[in-house]
Amino acid sequence: MASSTPLKGTELVDCARANANQGIQTAAYQCGYDDDLNKFAQELRNACESMNLQVKELTQLITDQDMILKIGTGEIIAPDTSSQL
């Protein structure tokens, strides 16, 4: 659910990270900035700086753990029985 007011600080960074895979438009909307991408980018940059994060692009917020979790949600492939390979 999108925030009704623009998020700031760690809440903004957390929300942006959670929506980074969906792109900047979706992340901005979900974080309460609607279609004001410039304001979203500026506030995100400020929030990251205050947390000592070196982030130049939204996709840099995606961690290795996020990628592992995404990969881990795939389909399980196994034989129907223990005697089949």
Rank of each mutant, 00 (worst) to 15 (best):
M1H: 11
M1A: 10
M1G: 13
S3Y: 05
S4I: 10
T5Y: 03
P6F: 08
P6Q: 07
P6L: 07
L7G: 01
K8G: 00
G9A: 08
T10R: 10
T10V: 14
L12K: 03
C15W: 02
A16W: 06
R17W: 02
A18W: 00
A18I: 00
N19V: 01
N19W: 03
N19C: 06
N19L: 02
A20E: 03
A20I: 01
N21S: 10
G23K: 11
I24V: 15
I24C: 00
Q25I: 07
Q25P: 01
A27K: 00
Y29V: 00
Q30S: 03
D35H: 09
D35A: 08
D35Q: 13
N38M: 12
K39I: 06
A41H: 01
Q42F: 08
Q42D: 12
E43D: 14
L44G: 01
R45A: 09
R45W: 03
A47K: 01
E49Y: 04
S50C: 04
S50N: 13
M51W: 01
N52K: 14
N52S: 13
L53Y: 09
L53I: 04
L53W: 04
L53N: 04
V55T: 07
K56H: 10
K56V: 09
K56F: 10
L58T: 04
L58M: 02
L58E: 00
T59C: 08
T59S: 13
Q60P: 01
Q60S: 11
L61W: 08
L61A: 01
T63C: 09
D64N: 09
D64C: 03
D66T: 03
D66F: 05
M67P: 02
L69I: 09
L69F: 07
K70L: 12
K70T: 13
I71C: 05
G72I: 03
T73V: 03
T73F: 06
T73P: 00
T73E: 12
T73W: 01
G74N: 13
G74D: 12
I76F: 11
I77Q: 11
I77M: 07
I77C: 05
A78E: 13
A78M: 12
P79F: 04
D80V: 06
D80E: 14
D80K: 10
D80M: 07
T81G: 14
S83T: 14
S83L: 11
Q84E: 15
Q84L: 14
L85S: 13
L85C: 05
L85D: 11
